[in-house]
Design a protein around this nucleic acid. Sequence first.
DNA 1: GGCAGTCAAGTACGC
DNA 2: GCGTACTTGACTGCC
Length: 293
Amino acid sequence: MRIGYPCINLSLQCRSSRTFRLKSYSQELMEKTVRDNLSCLQEILQYNLAHGILYFRISSDLIPFASHPICDFPWQEVFSEEFKALGGFVKKHKMRVTMHPDQFILINALEERIITNSVRELVYHAEVLDLLGVDLTCKIQIHVGGAYGDKKRSMTRFSQNFRELPPAVKRRLVVENDERIYSVADCMEVHRLTGIPVVLDALHHSANNRGETLGEALSLTSSTWRKRDGLPMVDYSSQKKGAKIGTHAYALDLKDFRRFLAETRGYDFDLMLEVKNKERSALRALKLVSEIE
DNA sequence: GGCAGTCAAGTACGC
DNA sequence: GCGTACTTGACTGCC
């Protein structure tokens, strides 16, 4: 099991997700921002290696406005060497990097415009991973999307639109269960229709399920990962006490995490800790896991 | 320097 | 049909 955290390292001063307002766009600002973001990503990966963290989610803001029509900056060519070096580092140390485009990415939308924009954004994500030169275990994780009043038809639309996606996106795309609409069982149906692997989000599962235990859900989702997809991906976060179900806690709740480990014993997977204090919780989780083993 | 409002993008829901 | 909540970190304007 590799343990990771998303996008930001709070122990470091730099951020790999610096952006700017659309109104401020210029090629110069774009170049500087991307250069700084890539340099910070290098710092983060070095920090991770030094601390035994081999799993990391790269921020979608690495290249701001990459899929926006305003972007006329050939970042792919300008920074190809930087990407190659970063990817070489990832591969050399057997790390896994993934990406998670946000809620606006909907390939089952009703409006053609939304699908077009989503595909552009997915192509950008695939470009980043391809430029790094990392293998197909490095995934792009999205949710199934909206229900639009008819979940079944919306799932069918997902699978139909999935078939039309560029191969570079298709081979990296995975779906994650969400806390309101698409449960693990729904994602399994999407898997049946498309063949794509399912990421299990443990907290979402606790809020939205059909009675499966966590272990049963993990057994189901694990079966969707082929050898070339790598180990199954699992997202875990502690529920913030007293807050709405699904709200991420500030720090890892060790008691809850122990229970999670007990419930998932016997399965191997890579674990993404979606906790606000980021790498600090990842380090505590690593320590706990090594003590148990 | 600090704070509050706002930011490319969407859906769901209540009125 | 319209406004608002959802979630999140960072930018931006204002004091």
